[in-house]
Lab assay of single mutants.
Amino acid sequence: EPLWIRPDAPSRCTWQLGRPASESPHHHTAPAKSPKILPDILKKIGDTPMVRINKIGKKFGLKCELLAKCEFFNAGGSVKDRISLRMIEDAERDGTLKPGDTIIEPTSGNTGIGLALAAAVRGYRCIIVMPEKMSSEKVDVLRALGAEIVRTPTNARFDSPESHVGVAWRLKNEIPNSHILDQYRNASNPLAHYDTTADEILQQCDGKLDMLVASVGTGGTITGIARKLKEKCPGCRIIGVDPEGSILAEPEELNQTEQTTYEVEGIGYDFIPTVLDRTVVDKWFKSNDEEAFTFARMLIAQEGLLCGGSAGSTVAVAVKAAQELQEGQRCVVILPDSVRNYMTKFLSDRWMLQKGFLKEEDLTEKKPWWWHLRVQELGLSAPLTVLPTITCGHTIEILREKGFDQAPVVDEAGVILGMVTLGNMLSSLLAGKVQPSDQVGKVIYKQFKQIRLTDTLGRLSHILEMDHFALVVHEQIQYHSTGKSSQRQMVFGVVTAIDLLNFVAAQERDQK
Rank of each mutant, 00 (worst) to 15 (best):
I239R: 01
G240C: 15
V241Y: 05
V241C: 12
D242A: 04
P243V: 09
E244F: 05
G245Y: 04
E250F: 07
E252S: 10
E253H: 01
E253C: 06
Q256F: 09
Q256P: 04
E258F: 11
Q259G: 10
T261I: 06
T261S: 15
Y262C: 06
Y262N: 01
V264N: 06
G266S: 01
I267N: 01
Y269I: 01
Y269C: 01
D270S: 06
D270N: 01
F271V: 04
T274E: 01
V275C: 06
V275A: 10
L276Y: 01
V280W: 10
D282I: 07
D282N: 13
F285P: 01
S287M: 08
N288W: 11
E290H: 12
A292L: 05
R297N: 01
Q302V: 08
Q302M: 12
Q302C: 11
C307R: 01
C307A: 12
G308N: 04
G308M: 05
G309C: 01
E324M: 10
G328E: 07
R330M: 15
C331M: 14
V332I: 09
V332N: 04
V332L: 12
V333G: 01
L335V: 12
S338Y: 01
V339S: 05
N341P: 01
N341W: 01
M343Y: 08
K345L: 01
G356V: 01
D362G: 10
T364C: 09
E365R: 12
K366E: 10
K366T: 14
K366F: 07
W370V: 09
R374N: 13
V375E: 04
L380M: 13
L380P: 11
A382E: 15
V386L: 11
L387G: 15
I390G: 12
T391Q: 01
C392A: 11
C392V: 12
C392T: 12
G393Y: 04
E397V: 09
I398N: 09
R400H: 09
E401V: 12
F404A: 05
F404D: 01
F404M: 11
Q406C: 08
A407M: 04
V409C: 14
V409A: 15
D411Q: 01
E412R: 06
G414A: 01
G414T: 11
V415N: 01
I416L: 11
L417S: 12
M419Q: 09
L422D: 08
M425Y: 08
L426V: 09
L429V: 10
L429H: 15
L429W: 08
L430M: 08
L430P: 15
A431N: 15
A431L: 15
G432E: 08
G432H: 14
G432P: 08
G432A: 13
Q435I: 12
P436R: 11
P436M: 08
S437P: 05
Q439H: 14
Q439W: 14
G441E: 13
K442V: 11
V443M: 15
Q447N: 10
Q447G: 05
Q447V: 08
T454S: 04
D455F: 05
D455K: 05
T456P: 15
L457P: 05
H462M: 09
D467W: 11
F469S: 10
A470V: 12
V472Q: 13
H474Q: 14
H474L: 08
Q476F: 11
Y479N: 11
S481F: 12
T482M: 11
G483N: 01
S485K: 01
S486F: 11
S486I: 12
Q487P: 09
M490A: 12
M490T: 01
F492H: 14
G493N: 15
V495K: 04
A497Y: 09
A497E: 01
D499S: 04
D499I: 01
L501N: 07
A506Y: 04
R509M: 11
